[in-house]
Amino acid sequence: MATLLCVAMVHILAPQLHAEESDSTVRLTNGHWPPYMENTPPHFGVISQIVTLAFAKEDISVTYGFFPWSRARLLAQKGLRDGSVAWTCRGKLLKFFHFSDPIVAHNYALFHRKDMDFDWDTVKDLESYRIGLTQDYNYGEEFEEAVAAGTISADTTTSDESNFRKLAAGRIDLFPMEPAVGMGMLKELGLSDKITFHTTPLQSDYL
């Protein structure tokens, strides 16, 4: 089966699937990251719809389970689901998954409070800031190496919403997030008047 979608497909199909179901249905984990992925029928976001249409070309239907990102990855990794939507292709995931072709390009921008005078050009420029990160996200090799080396102060949580609240409250200075997702989330949280983002991308990649 050829799929032109970046879905991470687990090496071994989930053992509890009935044989007849596995021939006509794939079960994928997903996360709420609108407008790309969202727990709202009928299409479940732009990426989910692309994935569904691609599998439909092979007469295969798709069902989605929505979870926090760490759980979404773990369920697929353990073979309790057939795969997961949608991730950047990186070495530590390649040990457990096959990756499809890319679905969409995306980037992370650095969000900051509007009352903060912020500009940057290189990762080294970020060393004086407190930066919030979300668990299981990929922020680019150079940035993640700086975090691992301790030259960048990072505080990791499991929730994008939590990071935006911390940013608004002044508990962190910067938060990298995909701009379209971030602006929509800020509107939902009622924080659009307090937070904006710098147009220089921290990382550009594909899902």
Rank of each mutant, 00 (worst) to 15 (best):
C89F: 09
Y108C: 00
F66Q: 08
V26T: 06
L28A: 01
E178T: 08
P176Q: 00
D101F: 12
E38Y: 07
V104G: 00
I131T: 05
D59R: 15
E178W: 06
V123I: 15
D119R: 15
L5E: 10
S153N: 13
R130M: 08
T40P: 00
E20Q: 12
Y36P: 01
A180F: 10
N163L: 07
M116Q: 15
I103S: 14
G182V: 00
G170D: 06
T63S: 14
D155G: 05
F197P: 01
A148I: 04
L207H: 12
F143C: 01
L93I: 08
P201V: 03
D136F: 09
A8N: 02
S61Q: 14
P68F: 07
T196F: 10
L110Q: 07
T196I: 10
H112L: 08
S128Y: 03
G182D: 03
T3V: 15
M37P: 01
L167S: 04
L53I: 08
T40V: 12
P179I: 07
D193Q: 13
H112I: 08
K95A: 11
A8R: 00
P41I: 06
L167G: 05
R71G: 06
G150M: 02
L28H: 07
L28E: 03
V85Y: 03
V51G: 02
L126Q: 07
T88Y: 09
V104R: 12
S192P: 00
D173N: 10
A105V: 04
L53A: 12
I131W: 00
L80M: 14
M185D: 00
V85E: 03
R165A: 06
K114I: 15
S128V: 14
L174D: 03
H98C: 10
D82N: 14
P102G: 08
S22Y: 07
V10F: 05
S70L: 10
L4I: 09
F164L: 07
Q135T: 13
L74E: 15
D117F: 14
S192W: 01
F66T: 06
A2M: 09
E58G: 09
K92T: 12
I195A: 04
L93E: 09
G31I: 12
R81S: 13
L74Y: 12
K95I: 03
S100A: 15
L94G: 01
A8C: 08
P15D: 09
P41W: 04
E38T: 04
